[in-house]
């Protein structure tokens, strides 16, 4: 538990200990412990540059074996510098550090986030552009009546196909799509709490089959879209921006969950992840409600 108290005694072991620690989450805890222990020491402040001196580049390239025992002692007695060093290693560290960091990283998480991001980058604007491109022939051939009629019918069919593919249709009736859910008649904190209440309607129906979960996710996603496009007049510009931005993030996550479900994700896991996401967004809304006036 008190990890800092397990530091080795010999300089070469200390160097390796630091190499390991500097890329681990435990570092923040070690820094807290070192800060507590040295809090009453009247040690002169030192910057990271003053401690590393001409070894700075060597440490970035080769690791802590380039540090003298005195430099290690200075780092340990100025523990905040360890956090600064850590950040520099992630930012500018050479192969020695990059390999260690990448060895511990989780490719699946990175890929999943990329998928989510790609969904986010598909903006409504680009969707409109695509529809415009599809519709263009209908407008261009308007003077040739027959062809124009064909174009019109084609465009109508495309629109119909697009419409039918958007299932389920934005569901009326629950969550943020319930009539009156986005009322302008209540003050901001109450409004945010009401949004959280509406989101909690997610838990009102079971999602114990793949189809039920997918439908429910799509309906919630449709509610997200409603929320993104609503005016929220009682919120300040900052809070409105926050809400829209969060909604976009949630919408992206819901999209990713729908995709994962379609790709055969385990139902129980997918259901638990969906529940966790809804709980998280409910908490975020309620927390925000405590900060707005």
């Amino acid at each position: 538990m008190l990890t800092a108290f397990n530091l080795p005694e010999e300089t070469d072991e200390l160097q390796q200990w630091l190499d390991d620690l500097l890329i681990k989450p435990e570092l923040t805890s070690v820094v807290s412990q070192l800060s507590a222990v040295h809090a009453s020491n009247s040690i002169e402040e030192m910057s990271l540059e003053q401690i590393l001196q001409e070894q700075a580049d060597a440490v970035l390239q080769q690791g802590c074996r380039e540090l003298s025992s005195q430099q290690i002692q200075q780092l340990l007695t100025h523990p905040e510098r360890l956090l600064e060093l850590q950040e520099r290693l992630f930012l500018e560290g050479g192969t020695f550090w990059q390999e260690r960091i990448l060895a511990a990283s989780d490719d699946a998480e990175v890929k999943q986030s990329q998928q989510w991001l790609q969904n986010q980058m598909e903006t409504p604007q680009s969707a409109e552009e695509k529809v415009e491109v599809q519709q263009a022939p209908a407008y261009k051939t308007v003077s040739y009546r027959k062809i124009g009629l064909l174009g019109f019918v084609s465009a109508a069919l495309i629109l119909l196909a697009v419409f039918l593919n958007q299932e389920p249709a934005p569901a009326p009736g629950w969550g943020w799509n319930r009539p009156g859910a986005l009322t302008a008649d209540i003050p901001a904190p109450e409004y945010l709490n009401k949004l959280a209440d509406s989101a909690e309607e997610w838990f009102n129906k079971p999602t114990d089959t793949r189809a039920a979960l997918e439908t429910r996710l799509k309906q919630f996603r449709a509610g997200c879209e409603t929320l993104i496009n609503a005016p929220h007049p009682q919120l300040s510009a900052t809070d409105r921006a926050w809400l829209v931005e969060r909604c976009q993030v949630w919408a992206g996550k819901l999209d990713a969950q729908i995709v994962a479900l379609n790709q055969g994700a385990d139902l129980k896991t997918a259901d638990a992840e969906a529940d966790a996401l809804i709980r998280k967004l409910v908490d975020a809304l309620r927390n925000r409600a405590t900060t707005v006036s």
């Binding site: 989450p25 570092l27 950040e87 992630f90 990448l102 990283s105 989780d106 990329q114």
Partner: peptide, 13 residues
Amino acid sequence: HAPILLAFLKTRC
């Protein structure tokens, strides 16, 4: 950059 950024954030979250 994503793997490095995520690894960094894991050290701070």
